[in-house]
Design a protein around this nucleic acid. Structure first.
Lengths: 244, 244
DNA sequence: GTCTATATCGGGATAGAC
DNA sequence: GTCTATCCCGATATAGAC
């Protein structure tokens, strides 16, 4: 759980023109792995099963994926890639901040609905040193792309947000999203009704807070909070847009 | 990581008069395990090593502890037990809420200082279904005892806290503490300076918030927050004092 | 380059002899 | 209560077929 070199791996875009055959095998292995993860959970799934289900030898599975964890990483990457257009669309159809944020969240929940347990395997890693952690160096690119959508959600709205807070807000909102997803993953209530309530109630509060933050009276409080945020997150700026 | 039956295990208090010899072996195994966890980390430590260091066979180690995880659970229990008197003392030497909370936190940080990596192994489990999770049924007793100290911290101070919030606050403060410990575990700054800053700044804000919460003007905001808390934590009350 | 087959190793966990 | 032998699995390495 500590050292798992999930190498850059052989993505289609990585080199020559996608060598169809190989890509197909890779996709089949990833597919059978995800299916197994979904039905039996990450830990119950063995690489031997994955290989058999995909109709290849164990060695082939390891040829394409450096480790079991690398399969999860591949899922993570694929998810981000597939969600990007959906997230862009979500933003373009709403103006008010609350609606925009909600739209982003809904894309995530919809996309991950079928993979709740899998997501659990991922978020089991809090340690930023672990490659699969949402806070690791290895997942930075994915994370930054995602944070960027929260920056866009803020940009595109008419609400005025103080500059000092605005610089921190995308990352905070991303954290807020992660918290919601975490709660959702382990929400045992029917149809995750509790998560739904949590989203409604917390979103309203979050947006109010952002609104209030601009009031002159709130300035001293805001300064203290921004200072706190700086302590937690350091000086990392909002990631610049990474061109696809 | 999903199913790990760490059974109630054979604690001295569990049955006959402590059968000294057996207890001694058990303690030796736990001791060598913790030593290994500290120096080499949880994952690098093998049960074979633990057994050899304790001068027993692997099977013997498994006779006393159902799994490697059970060793961590034993550590968790022992920690709670050993910290209780220290926590009581911390409370009895301070009056102001901020001082009382800080004193509780300091006991935790001091106690766990030598075991930072070990604590990491524990908190790797967010899933409330996992026995070792700080939110699991298996750790409920330990958790409840700990939450109870936050209730005491609130009780013993002169600050007036609205009843609706007061009922929720001990659990919230416990969560706050868990967040701080989590940050601390992975804080790579020298001497965990960042955690120290985080404690100082956040504690001031937390106490201010509690103070403000009683202002009549804050009532509507407070109601919304309390409602939110209820959604997250359900109706679980502050645990009653469990008599030792 | 893509894949099979197979062997080996380390490590958690267990069964059964003593 | 304790030990030995064993099992299973993830990971890795290698030899070689195509």
């Amino acid at each position: 759980m500590t050292s798992t070199n999930s190498q850059p791996d052989r993505t289609p875009a990585a080199g020559r023109p996608a060598s169809s055959k190989s890509e197909e095998t890779r996709a089949r292995i990833l597919g059978s792995a995800l299916a197994s993860f979904r039905t039996r959970g990450f830990h119950q799934t063995t690489m031997r099963e994955v290989a058999v289900d995909a109709g290849v030898a164990v060695g082939a599975a390891y040829y394409y994926f450096d480790s079991k964890d690398a399969l999860v990483m591949a899922f993570y990457e694929r998810a981000q890639q597939e969600m990007e257009p959906l997230l862009s669309e979500a933003l373009s159809s709403h103006d008010a901040l609350e609606r925009r944020l909600r739209a982003l969240l809904e894309v995530k929940f919809d996309y991950f609905r079928a993979n709740r347990s899998l997501l659990g395997a991922l978020s089991a890693h809090v340690d930023p040193q672990h490659p699969l952690s949402p806070f690791s160096e290895e997942t930075r690119e994915i994370r930054d792309k995602d944070i960027w959508f929260f920056a866009r959600a803020l940009e595109g709205t008419s609400m005025r947000v103080p500059a000092d807070l605005k610089a921190r807000l995308p990352r905070i909102l991303w954290m807020y999203q992660m918290g919601l997803l975490l709660f959702w993953m382990y929400d045992r209530s029917a149809e995750q009704a509790r998560t739904r309530q949590l989203v409604d109630k917390s979103l309203a509060i979050v947006v109010s807070l952002i609104q209030f933050s601009g009031f002159p009276l709130m300035r001293p409080v805001r300064k203290r909070v921004v200072d706190l945020l700086q302590t937690v997150f350091g000086d990392e700026p909002v990631p610049a847009r990474i061109e696809a």
